[in-house]
Simulated scan of single mutants.
Amino acid sequence: MKKLVAAAAACLALVTACSAQDRPAQKAAAPGTAGGVYPVTLTNAWGGDTIDKKPLRVATVSDGDTSIALALGLVPVITPDTEDGGAIPEYKKRAMDKLGVTSLKTYDDTDGTDYEAIAAEAPDVILGVNTWGMDTDYAKLAPIAPVVTYAQKKDADTLPWQERLKVAAQALGKSAEAEAVIGGNRKAIADAAAANPAFRGKTYTYVVVHPEQITFMSYADQDPGIFEDLGLRKTDKAAGYTAKDNGVSLENLDQLDADVVLVTYPFGDEGLLSASELAGNKLFQSLEAVKNKHVAVVPAENTLSSAIAYPDALSSSWVVEQLTPILAKAVAGG
Rank of each mutant, 00 (worst) to 15 (best):
K3M: 15
L4N: 15
A7V: 05
L14C: 09
V15D: 07
C18Q: 06
C18F: 03
R23T: 10
Q26F: 05
A28G: 01
A28R: 05
A30C: 03
Y38E: 10
V40I: 13
T43I: 03
N44E: 02
G47D: 10
D49S: 09
P55S: 08
R57M: 02
D63Y: 01
I68P: 03
I68Y: 03
I68F: 11
A69I: 05
L72Y: 11
P76F: 10
I78K: 04
D84T: 10
K92D: 09
A95R: 15
D97F: 05
D97R: 09
G100E: 10
T102P: 04
D108N: 15
D114W: 13
A119G: 03
A119Q: 10
I126D: 00
V129Y: 09
Y138N: 10
A139I: 04
L141D: 08
L141I: 11
T149C: 08
K154Q: 15
A156N: 04
D157P: 00
D157N: 15
D157R: 10
L159G: 02
L159W: 11
P160M: 01
Q162N: 01
E177I: 09
N185D: 13
I189Q: 08
A190C: 03
A192C: 02
A193S: 11
R200F: 04
G201I: 12
K202R: 14
K202C: 06
T203H: 05
T205Y: 11
V209K: 04
V209H: 09
H210S: 00
Q213Y: 01
Q213L: 03
Q213S: 02
T215K: 15
D223S: 08
D223V: 07
G225I: 00
I226G: 02
I226L: 06
L232S: 02
R233N: 06
D236K: 06
Y241R: 12
A243H: 08
K244L: 05
N246S: 13
G247V: 00
L250P: 03
N252K: 11
D254W: 01
L256G: 08
D257L: 11
G268L: 11
G268C: 11
G268W: 14
D269C: 01
E270Q: 08
G271P: 01
G271Q: 04
L272M: 10
S276N: 15
E277W: 10
K282M: 03
F284L: 09
Q285F: 12
L287M: 04
A289T: 03
H294F: 09
V298R: 15
V298F: 07
P299I: 14
A300C: 07
E301D: 15
N302W: 08
S305A: 13
A313P: 00
S316W: 06
S317H: 00
W318N: 12
V319I: 14
Q322C: 12
L327S: 10
L327K: 10
